[in-house]
Design a binder for these strands. Structure first.
Lengths: 259, 259
DNA sequence: CTAGGACCTTCCGTCGCGGCAGGTTCAAGC
DNA sequence: GCTTGAACCTGCCGCGACGGAAGGTCCTAG
């Protein structure tokens, strides 16, 4: 019968045999030994590792937990906790699940953003690489300035709009910024009908981001003032691209006054 | 007017100013310098970095691309390619998107598996930690043995069934294996009605995995033989858990002959 | 007895920095 | 001009989970 807790008898395996059988590499097994996660119970006189059946059982557990995405440290702790405390295990797996969910959200955001940018490239809307990079810079500035100060407001709006709407808006900014920048650079008059249409879209998007609980006009002014403050605070003397953004906002202001 | 390509005139910024303005850390900027991604154009006589406007522009591009999840090496290469080759950029972003999609699939799988395991724990179906670990080991062995030899077949079935169905099946294995293992250990007679029901579920699941283009009986035999070969090949003398799996399969065989 | 494969330890590399040690320099106030 | 504290410099170790190589020892089949 089985003698539990003793390995006086029974087969021993070399590290290579264990590796071939378990699908792990010899190097990984030695690493587990190094960090104390799984060391061979015995050594031969010459120092070769001899794994016992108990070791093999532990290895299979390690591998199973690693396949679930746990770190080696977490695995060590959960295997140390009475070799299988289900409550600790449940907590760990739950935490792992939370982490994965957060990760999934992040990936979703990035995926959406990349789709938007690729569409812009493929749509031949942006033949100029420099312009494209500038747009990227703008979005970067735009997002970081908002995530620093107005994260809470954005979070509230996000729950109302649904996060997809926010993401969609973000990628729509790309094209909008690009077109308006071109007009700023070209010095297109602010009462140009095309410009007015773009400004209209801008304000629509902006009002979606800011709290428009009061009246609409005050909101737009507030949005603009927010930008002023942000650029002053963030880009203390920096010319790029906060400065370009400021130019763009000034241009927008003039366009609104002209309309 | 702007003098492009020359920075003889214009403001210079220290590394701290750049860091505060861009939201990056001083350490990160020095790292970018170290790896040659972004070095300050000039140095003071004493060695302090002096960043020019060109550097700042490059930094913003780096930050934007990093926010899209690109590696610093990729960023360096795409910024080196004529400072903005849109085709190269498009390729990189596309590759990035592919990577993210693959990542999302992986996360989805892990999430599903974790949900299944947590349900089993919470459902009080598994009061014994050791039994739970054993189940984990089984699933691990099961999956690795299938991913090595029959990956193509599985892939074909996956596209037919839809990946969710395959995932659902995988987590259903957990409970099935656990219950059957208990019967094997307890020595429940193979003609027990409960055991027969479990075997029925097992075969149903298995037939979903294997190609059942021919007749059903041959499929089951083939599935079983596959297991035999796998355990022989993989666990050459290993007692655990391939051996337990072999016992389980033998038990299944006897149950089928009894039925 | 010999050959070649399996095994051993030790160290360096990954990726994107964080953080510290130990030294120099800058800018403001006196 | 002097002091002082903040900012800057280089250089090194650390992280996680190993991969890979160097240089040596051991095992086993023929």
């Amino acid at each position: 019968m089985d003698v539990i807790g003793k390995d006086d008898a029974g087969r021993r395996w070399s590290i290579g045999e264990i590796a071939r059988a378990s699908g792990m590499t010899v190097r990984a097994l030695r690493h587990y030994d190094e960090i104390g996660l799984l060391s061979a119970d015995e050594r031969t006189a010459s120092g070769h590792r001899r794994y016992t059946e108990r070791d093999v059982r532990r290895l299979y557990r390690v591998r199973a937990l690693r396949a679930l995405g746990l770190s080696l440290e977490e695995i060590a702790s959960v295997l140390a906790d009475s070799e299988g405390d289900l409550a600790a295990m449940r907590d760990l797996l739950t935490a792992q699940l939370r982490g994965l969910e957060a990760h999934a959200v992040r990936i979703q955001q990035l995926t959406h953003r990349l789709h938007g940018l690729l569409e812009q490239i493929d749509g031949a809307l942006m033949p100029d690489p420099d312009q494209f990079m500038t747009t990227l810079e703008m979005i970067s500035v735009f997002e970081t300035s908002f995530t620093t100060e107005q994260r809470e407001q954005l979070a509230r709006r996000r729950t109302e709009l649904g996060s997809e709407a926010v993401e969609a808006a973000k990628t729509e900014w790309a094209g909008l910024v690009e077109e308006l920048l071109r007009h700023v650079q070209d010095g297109t008059p602010v009462d140009d009908p095309q410009v007015r249409a773009l400004v209209g879209r801008w304000d629509t998007l902006a009002s979606g981001f800011h709290s428009d609980g009061e009246d609409g006009e005050r909101t737009k002014a507030a949005a603009q003032r927010t930008w002023e403050e942000n650029s002053e605070e963030i880009g203390r003397g920096l010319p790029w691209p906060v400065d370009r953004m400021r130019d763009l906002v000034h241009y927008l202001e003039r366009a609104r006054q002209a309309g």
